Computed example of a mutant assay.
Amino acid sequence: MKKLLLILITLIVVIGAGTWVAFTFYGSPFEKNKAEEKMDEQLVNLGIGDEDIAGREIEYNKKFGKYEIDIEYKGEENLTYTYLYRSDLDRVLLIEIYDDQKQETVREGEHDSTLNYSV
């Protein structure tokens, strides 16, 4: 009986530690879904549809512990808009617009501006 209890406790600890490591390095899949929902909601509020988007990528930023969403809009393929999902604020914030041709950050693009956001 003690052996079975020890095996069960060890199994629970290993699964719990593995889950913690996975969430720490790769982010929560639930938070990723929430980030995508909030981004979609924000795009609708800006009047931007799927037909206006050339590319979209979501990735977990381990440094900040938050999801970043990179979007390239049609007609502005040289600009990459980077949004950060803030679960504590339950919203998506534009943190950077990067011009791939000039290799520099810009403040405004045709579809959005970093000046539109405050915390």
Rank of each mutant, 00 (worst) to 15 (best):
F30D: 14
S118N: 13
T114D: 08
E51R: 11
E36W: 02
E76K: 02
K66C: 06
I69H: 03
E31D: 10
I71V: 15
T80R: 02
Y26L: 11
G49V: 06
T105P: 01
T24M: 11
D88E: 15
A22S: 13
F23C: 06
I9G: 09
I9W: 03
I12F: 14
G109F: 01
E31L: 14
Y117S: 00
E68V: 10
F30P: 03
K63Y: 09
V21F: 10
L84M: 14
M1P: 09
G75S: 07
L46W: 14
E59P: 02
W20N: 13
G49K: 15
G75K: 05
K2V: 06
A22M: 10
L115K: 03
K62L: 11
M39S: 12
D88Q: 08
S113R: 00
V44L: 09
Q101R: 07
D50G: 12
E41Y: 08
V13Y: 02
E108V: 03
M1K: 06
T114Y: 01
I71S: 04
K32S: 12
Y98G: 01
V119W: 12
I12C: 13
E77M: 05
S118W: 04
I48G: 00
E77C: 03
G47K: 06
R86Y: 09
Q101W: 02
I53H: 04
K2Y: 06
Q101F: 03
T24V: 12
L84V: 15
K34P: 05
E108R: 02
L5T: 11
I7M: 10
D90Q: 13
Y67V: 08
P29W: 05
A35H: 13
L4R: 13
T114S: 08
A35K: 08
N78P: 00
